[in-house]
Each structure stands twice: as structure tokens, then as C-alpha cells.
Design a protein around this nucleic acid. Structure first.
Lengths: 191, 191
DNA sequence: AAATGACTAAAATAGTTTTTCGGTCATAAC
DNA sequence: GTTATGACCGAAAAACTATTTTAGTCATTT
């Protein structure tokens, strides 16, 4: 049973995590924002970490829904791949929380946050993997290991979105879609 | 003019950096190993950082030579790509210094070391870029941006060698060569 | 002119005290 | 009897201080 209080606590925690990060958030702070006693938090969540986990789990489910919605049955695989990853990226950008947590990993390396983001990455890879399996069955992609392929596609996307801009100028959505299609699907070997 | 002393200092520094890392190495230590007075180091190198830079610069030149030697004119591009990166990886594994410095970046994040390894990465990308340009001219690869292509190939190699093994079991030389060829050159789109 | 190591100022480290904070629990509210 | 609360506790972090280390200098030596 999801009580009114539990919802308030989750909202408060999300707000505080977004504003001050995981480490920077105290349980007193969360209690204050949620307007509940600190002890109340512990009737719904065993630990602070569990509170973060539950928030991220919820966000993960939401993200999976967004990715699924971005996919149009019948459209080519790469198109759907890009649409989905773009939708998720946009979602993450809108939710300040994700940005703040990524930052926290980079500059403080908070272990709990590293783990939680790693989980999201794994889930993303698994989602891509399932789509790749379908694409292979449908004959859209040729036989290949879906796990490695998903991993490499995801990494390439991240490399293009995050790492390339550190060296040169950042790329926009369409450029990235084009690049992934060019390298991954068509290949650059001369026929 | 390269004096005997300068060589001794470089050797001593390499040894100490390999053994204790950059932070863990003191100039007194280097002087002791090199059997010179500490002041002498400063007649050849302005700072400790400059000493590291010069060592890495030397190593970079050596690595470029090794990569160049691994390339066989006339062989297909991917084959040479893998041979070169494999030779360089092996070289780095043999030279304890590189391993130690990579470790130091991961666990302490020493800024000077981050920078110096970043430089090597950039140089590697530039080297690959030059080879890609040639391959395009020769008609072995079709038209593509050599800079982005080099960046992505390098990243894919690193992803496969370093990151994949964190999730699953590590891949051997030939598996990686095969994967790069499959994904990058041939593409996985059905014909 | 090249080499040296005692020296210095600044930074890192160790040691100590103070404060903060996750989590508990006796009590209160309902 | 169930849910909510905040004062309270011990452990961990932060602040502060004392101590040591060390990059770089420079007067002296070779």
C-alpha cells in the first residue's frame, strides 16, 4: 500500500538529491522538505541507500516506458535505436537528478551513486539487447552476439554524445544517428 | 647534447615512477637511484612534471615506431589496425610504467598523470587518423570523416579490451580483431 | 661550468577535537 | 494497536592543529 507519506518522502528526496546530490542530502533535510518526522522515513525505507535505489528503480521503469514508446513497429532498427536513445537522453536531461548524480560520480565518486548508475547502464544495454534479438529474427540485422553488439552500440552512442565534445564540438541528434548508421550498420569497408 | 647524467636521471625516474607511481616518487628518490645530487636533476629538467613529460614523450615516439613497424604495406586496413594496436598494447603491458600510471589515474586521479595519458591517447588517435586517410585514398575504406572514425575505432578497441571484461569475461586478441572487422568494416545490417 | 646537498617554503600527512548525520527507540498521537 | 515523531546515540566525517615530507633553490665545491 502506497501511502501519502511515502509519496511525499520520495518527492522530497528526489528534490534534495537533485539539488545537493546524494552525499549532500541529509535525512533531516528530506524529513523537513517532506514535512514528516525523520523516523517516519524509516518506516518506509530501511536506509538512505534504499531510498535512492527505490527512486532510481522508479525512474528506470519510466525510462523503459519512454524508450518503448519512442519505438515504432515496422521502422528500421537504427531509426528506432536512435529515437529511443534520444528520448531517454532528453528525459535524463530534463530530470535534473540524473545530471546531478552523474556529476557526483565524476567529482566525488560516491560508491552508492556509482552502483545505481551502473545498474541503469546495464538495464539500458539489456533493453537494446532485446531489440537486437528481435531485429536479427526479423532479418534486419545479420547474425551477431546480441550482448556484445548492444554493449558496443550503447558505448558508441555515449562516446559520441559525451566524449567527443570534450575534444571537439558537440554533435547534434541527427549527426549522431547518421554516424551510428554509417559505422555500425553499413560499415566503412569499400564494397 | 644528451649527457650521461641526463640519461641516468631518466632511467632512474622511469624505474621509480614504475615502482611507486608519479605521486609516490620523490625527487630525492630519483636522485638517489640515479646516483646524482638532487640539484643536478634541475639542470636538465625544470620540474618534476617536465621530467614525466619528457619520459612519456620518449615513450610516445617509441610506441609510434612500434605501431609503424607492425603495419605491413599491402595488408588490409583492419589487419594492420589490429596488429598495430595489439603491438602497442603489448608494449604498454611490458612497460610496467604505463600500467602503474593508468592505475594511478584510476585510484588517485593525479592531474599531471591524467594529462600525460590523455596526450598519448590523442596521439594514438592522430596516428590512426593518418592511416585512415591513406586507406580512403587507396579506396580501401569509403569516404568518411577520418577524425571521428579514428576516435570511434580507438574507443571501440578500448571498450572491448578494458570495459567488456568488467561485465563478462575478457576477450583475446583474435576475438577483438574479428569483432572490430565485423562491426566496423562490414557492418551488421543485412545486405 | 657542472655538480652538489643543506636549506626553505609550501604542501602533504598524522593526530586530535569537534561537529554532523544515519539510524534507533521511547513516547505521543490517532 | 498502529503510525508518527524527534530527542538521542554512536560512528563517521569535518575542522583544526602539529608534524613531517618534499619540490625546488642556491651558496659552495669540484
Amino acid at each position: 500500500m502506497i501511502t501519502d507519506k511515502k509519496v511525499k518522502i520520495i518527492h522530497a528526496a528526489m528534490k534534495s538529491f537533485s539539488l545537493f546530490g546524494y552525499k549532500g542530502t541529509t535525512m533531516d533535510q528530506v524529513a523537513k522538505i517532506a514535512k514528516v518526522g525523520k523516523g517516519t522515513i524509516y518506516t518506509y525505507f530501511t536506509t538512505k541507500e534504499e531510498l535512492l535505489n527505490e527512486i532510481i528503480r522508479k525512474l528506470g521503469i519510466e525510462m523503459r516506458k519512454i524508450a518503448t514508446d519512442a519505438v515504432t513497429t515496422g521502422h528500421p532498427f537504427v531509426e528506432n535505436f536512435n529515437a529511443a536513445l534520444f528520448a531517454v537522453t532528453k528525459f535524463q536531461e530534463e530530470h535534473e537528478l540524473m545530471i546531478k548524480l552523474s556529476q557526483e560520480v565524476k567529482e566525488m565518486g560516491t560508491p552508492e551513486v556509482i552502483e545505481v548508475l551502473q545498474d541503469i547502464e546495464n538495464e539500458t544495454c539489456e533493453f537494446i539487447e532485446s531489440k537486437i534479438k528481435l531485429a536479427i529474427e526479423r532479418g534486419e540485422l545479420r547474425e551477431c552476439d546480441p550482448k556484445i553488439t548492444a554493449f558496443l552500440m550503447f558505448k558508441m552512442y555515449v562516446n559520441l554524445v559525451n566524449d567527443w565534445k570534450d575534444r571537439y564540438e558537440s554533435l547534434d541528434k541527427d549527426q549522431i544517428a547518421e554516424l551510428i548508421n554509417m559505422y555500425f550498420i553499413e560499415g566503412i569497408g569499400s564494397e
